[in-house]
């Protein structure tokens, strides 16, 4: 990449950071408990809107992994999410009625919080339907991973998004509050992913999975991106470019080995396809606040009307991280 290219990316990064600083004014604090955070606390950042039913299990899952503090942006929920979160002792909460779309789909808000609280800390940025799986996650807390990443001088950790789905129409098994969503959505696609390098950012662009083969089979280019870099030892000068798909400076996107080796990586189990989904899709369509004119949701609604079952004979039933490792969806790398 030439000087001009590098300069453009630098300006892009500056602009993204400036946006985040500007959007900071959108956020109204509801509960702030960040004062007593230790310098080595592991933080989780998330934006949400009307996800009350998912929250108890989400919090439990990440508390068990070893998240020290949660920082949420509530985008004008009306279902009690705000009060529920505000009452949690390890949650700091901001709320805003501003436009999700105009805030780069929440990333401006998240980045302003990352700047304020994430500097020099390990920060996990996820949605409330994304659950991080990493090598040895059953026996080693998240801090074991971040300590190891620190010792290896690695600043970013890749976790590809794995869409999970139930067997049978998604409306058939209602999700109960507090339930592990993967008791219902326990299936996934194991080997239909495509990888391309995304210049000039240098990240991998991953597509595929059930959404791609059902909703986007005739226009694969528009299928959603599955590459994610959710866990970063944050620095004020970093910027998420598009969701958590890629970062600037672009060296942070080099989470893959180019010489044949495997770097350590994980997966984000995506519990989107529960019975709550159809409702959500309709609501989001009406709001029109999502990426690319909510193209994704349009496709879903059409698809859901015709073919509401992702499951097929070759669907793989989720067991544990080791299974994902063997299938080649994630890797232990040299972490043993």
């Amino acid at each position: 990449m030439g000087l001009i290219g590098s300069y453009r990316l630098r300006m892009r990064r500056r602009r993204l950071i400036a946006r985040a600083v500007l959007r900071r004014k959108d956020l109204v604090p509801v509960a702030q408990r960040t004062e007593s955070l230790r310098p080595d606390a592991i933080l989780l950042f998330a934006t949400l809107r009307n996800e009350r039913v998912r929250l108890p299990y989400f919090l439990k899952y990440y508390r068990d992994l070893g998240i020290d503090h949660f920082l949420f942006v509530d985008n004008d929920s009306t279902d009690g999410s705000r009060d529920y979160l505000a009452a949690q002792p390890d949650v700091s909460l901001w709320t805003t009625p501003a436009s999700y779309r105009k805030s780069r789909f929440g990333m401006d808000w998240i980045m302003s919080l990352l700047r304020a609280h994430g500097h020099n800390r390990w920060c996990l940025t996820v949605d409330v339907d994304e659950f991080l799986i990493y090598p040895f996650c059953e026996t080693r807390p998240l801090r074991a991973l971040t300590d190891w990443l620190d010792a290896s001088s690695i600043r970013t950790f890749s976790a590809m998004m794995l869409d999970m789905y139930p067997q049978g129409p998604i409306q058939d098994q209602p999700y109960r509050e507090g339930q592990n969503p993967f008791e219902i959505a326990q299936w996934f696609d194991s080997g239909n992913y495509t990888f391309t390098r995304n210049w000039p950012y240098g990240n991998l662009w991953i597509q595929g999975g059930p959404r791609s083969r059902t909703f986007f089979a005739s226009r694969p280019r528009q299928a959603p991106a599955l590459n994610k870099i959710p866990l970063v030892r944050w620095d004020r000068s970093f910027a998420y470019v598009s969701s958590t798909h890629m970062l600037l400076p672009r060296g942070l996107n080099l989470v893959y080995d180019r010489a044949g080796g495997e770097k350590t990586s994980g997966c984000l189990l995506h519990a989107k396809f529960l019975d709550t989904f159809a409702l959500k899709a309709q609501e989001e369509m009406a709001r029109g606040e999502h990426y690319a004119e909510s193209r994704e949701y349009k496709a879903y609604l059409n698809g859901l009307a015709e073919q509401p079952d992702f499951w097929c004979k070759w669907s793989e039933k989720y067991i544990n991280w080791r299974q994902l490792e063997i299938l080649g969806l994630m890797s232990t790398g040299n972490w043993a």
Binding site: F195, I206, Y256, D257, G261, E262, K263, S265, G328, S331
Partner: peptide, 11 residues
């Protein structure tokens, strides 16, 4: 790495 595998951390 594993021969013939293309994935998020091996490309």
């Amino acid at each position: 790495g594993r021969a013939g595998l293309y994935m998020q951390s091996r490309f």
